[in-house]
């Protein structure tokens, strides 16, 4: 049997896959955070709550409306994005002229409010969400058994990240977004409705979190606290990648997911903290993050 460092290849591949799946969620969530931070300069603490909302909208649609996973995959992110747009327009936009700390505090409070409400309504325990029939089962890759749904999550998140990256780097709307990140006042003086752009950006980030939530529903339990558990790691990902760096957020998300997975093989106890160890090292050596520009 093939071994690497004394551990069987099967174990390595299994953890690599697990790491890639976790990395898929980290990438989608940190991408949204990075896009929001880049343009709005808001550290969106409600991001975990939006991820949780995505999963819950899918669950509630299935329970009360009998709508299946594929419908939820499109509708739930839209619902969360719409919620994000309303929050930005009616509340968050009032805070831009104040210190950035207010945006952070507001979104933190919002997260507590949303998660508290859901805990009150649905309890703290997780609820299962079935894997869609078309993606159930698995395939034997020879060196390991791959559940099809997990393969789908990796592919779907790659597609989502690539689509957002193309949107930002290659479209006219994306050029407005990049330019506004540098100098919003000047872009607005050119006749671009920057306030609307901010709303759309927040909605995009929220929608991405919602999409991640739907993808996560069949893998993890749908619970009001699922966002709290993941968001701290995602913040570490954003810090490692470099605040506001789009590509950095995506690549770092997958990389740290994999680092976490592989650590489980060698020294499982360290897997929970490896990301934060990497964060500390990166902060010491490159305070702006791996892909960040020095401010």
């Amino acid at each position: 049997m093939t071994t690497i460092f004394g551990y069987p290849l099967v174990v390595w591949m299994g953890q690599l896959l697990l790491g890639l799946i976790n990395g898929s969620f980290y990438a989608m969530l940190s991408l949204g955070l990075a896009v929001i931070f880049g343009l709005l300069r808001v550290i969106n603490f409600a991001h975990g709550a939006m991820y949780m909302l995505g999963a819950f909208v899918a669950l509630l649609m299935a329970t009360y409306l009998g709508l299946n996973y594929w419908v939820a995959l499109f509708v739930a992110p839209l619902v969360v994005a719409l919620g994000g747009a309303i929050v930005e327009r009616t509340m968050l936009s009032r805070l831009y002229k104040l210190d950035h700390l207010y945006g952070l505090l507001f979104t933190f409070g919002l997260a507590l409010l949303i998660e508290g409400t859901f805990r009150y309504l649905f309890g703290a325990s997780g609820q299962p969400y079935p894997v869609p029939a078309a993606l159930s089962g698995g395939v034997n890759l020879g060196f390991m058994f791959l559940p099809i749904y997990r393969g789908w999550v990796i592919i779907a998140s790659l597609i989502a990240c690539l689509a957002v990256w193309l949107l930002i780097e290659k479209t006219k709307l994306g050029s407005y977004l990049r330019a506004s990140t540098e100098n919003p006042v000047l872009v607005q003086s050119f006749g671009v409705n920057v306030p609307l752009l901010l709303t759309l950006t927040y909605a995009l980030g929220a929608g991405l979190a919602g999409l991640a939530g739907v993808l996560a529903a069949p893998i993890y339990q749908v619970s009001p606290l699922m966002g709290t558990n993941i968001i701290i790691i995602v913040f570490a990902v954003v810090v490692v990648g470099g605040m506001g760096s789009i590509l950095g957020a995506i690549i770092t998300g997958y990389m740290l997911g994999i680092a976490e997975g592989l650590t489980k093989v060698i020294y499982p106890e360290a897997s929970n903290i490896v990301i934060f160890v990497i964060m500390a090292i990166v902060l010491i050596l490159r305070p702006a993050g791996l892909f960040g520009k020095d401010a």
């Binding site: 540098e182 000047l186 607005q188 003086s189 050119f190 006749g191 671009v192 409705n193």
Partner: peptide, 22 residues
């Protein structure tokens, strides 16, 4: 602000405002 441009006024600021990421 964003409708001033639409009225037909264009502004070239002193610092030029060229975008580095574009």
């Amino acid at each position: 602000l964003h409708n001033t441009a639409k009225a037909g006024v264009g502004f070239v600021p002193e610092e030029r405002g060229i975008f580095a990421t574009l």
